[in-house]
Design a protein around this nucleic acid. Structure first.
Lengths: 228, 228
DNA sequence: TTTAAAACATGATATTTATCAGGTTTTTAA
DNA sequence: TTAAAAACCTGATAAATATCATGTTTTAAA
């Protein structure tokens, strides 16, 4: 099994603040796992008791609303960490995580990380920064959800997907989402998402074949997203 | 000037983890301020460089959307702390805070707190817990904003206001918000908020005279909020 | 390879919500 | 105290969005 110490994803998250020794210890108690596309990493109500490090693949993090609809809160990819909240709270998870493609993840038990948290101030600050940044992003999402139209949110979502997952050699956004997933990010009905995607296609702002989406007119998209 | 050490609000937040000595030091570098109703504590884009401790009064924390509408993200009251994000980030504030009534607040410079953060693990964990909890709440708000109707969100908001601010001797919710503020919490047009409040009044679920709102049928309100 | 299931698409319609316009009442400041 | 401003309210209407219905295409599994 590979060692945390050599793990490339370390550079993208708070683990970069840990010493060689600390990483070696984590390495010895981590569990590595392969998750197939569509499989669940954890459910709402699960006790996490540790962190998940994403080594490869993408998952959607979502929460069921009381109306019975699923809201995707975040997409998590290589280098990201989930489960940070479990470090400081004994509550069960309020979120669910499902793989969007085949994934490779590591699980590190909470107690081991807590040990580092209390001894390595740089690491703690890293985790704090992470949480603070997530909080800022969450505030922005709240404002968008509350104040923007579905059309604006779709445009915004496409821009963010492009920035987060980049484009492949053909200019296609490097993530495959179903129309339902897109609707669940935006917070709208699947039919509405489909309709608005078709509109954007008609207006030559995007182009798509199935789940492969290409942005033709990023300026146009930004204009819609920002409401001009 | 009063001392942090004796400050009652300490018990409600992470400062409870600080030692007598640490509190004495904070005391000596804090600034106390009176903020009048309607005055701004800080604006979007301001450099905070420290924490605000609310000793008395209530303020609304909001963010302008690109559509030019204001979204109230949170209401902050006695015992709460704002500006935590400034501790771990040099970015300017993404939020604005305005007093809803006369307030008494203390400002503690960032550097002083950072000093404690790096030396007192209990305090750090307290701040971490705080952020994690805020993040969880933010996720819930995102889901509500994305998936619930305006009517549901209004009902939910009234319930939360009752829980957060309690009732006075006459059963009236202990916070005075303008219709516009209520609309900006829910994320809707002021007229819509007014209309839906009137509906609830007609149905004898609430009762109000101006800004004084009384809940008559909490079960009914919950039924609406949770979508049955 | 075939077939069932899932995902995608679009029209018709209903519902929700925003906007505009016009009032009344309350608050604030001169 | 009074005048102006702000807040509140309601109706009419328009716009946005959800829902239902139905058909097509794609995907996955037998």
């Amino acid at each position: 099994m590979s060692k945390c110490e050599q793990c490339i994803i370390r550079q993208f998250n708070s683990f970069k603040y840990l010493s060689k020794e600390e990483l070696l210890r984590l390495s010895s108690c981590k569990t590595s796992k392969i998750i197939k596309k569509g499989e669940t990493i954890f459910e709402e109500g699960d006790h996490l008791n540790g962190l998940f490090c994403i080594k490869d693949g993408v998952c959607k993090v979502s929460k069921m609303s009381e109306n019975g609809r699923n809201q995707i809160i975040d997409l998590i990819q290589k280098g990201d960490i989930i489960g940070e909240r479990s470090l400081v709270s004994d509550e069960t998870s309020n979120l669910k995580a499902v793989a969007l493609n085949d994934m490779e993840i590591c699980f590190i038990p909470k107690e081991e990380i807590i040990r580092d948290l209390s001894k390595n101030p740089n690491f703690t600050m890293g985790v704090l920064k992470d949480l603070a940044n997530n909080l800022k992003k969450a505030d922005n999402v709240i404002v968008d959800m509350a104040q923007k139209t579905v059309k604006q949110r779709l445009a915004e979502t496409l821009i963010k997907l492009k920035e987060k997952f980049d484009l492949n050699e053909d200019g296609i956004i490097n993530i495959q989402l179903s129309r339902e997933d897109i609707a669940n990010i935006i917070g709208t009905a699947t039919e509405s998402a489909i309709r608005l995607l078709s509109d954007l296609k008609k207006k030559k702002i995007i182009e798509f074949k199935g789940k492969e989406i290409k942005i033709l007119d990023i300026k146009g998209l930004e204009k819609i997203a920002h409401g001009f």
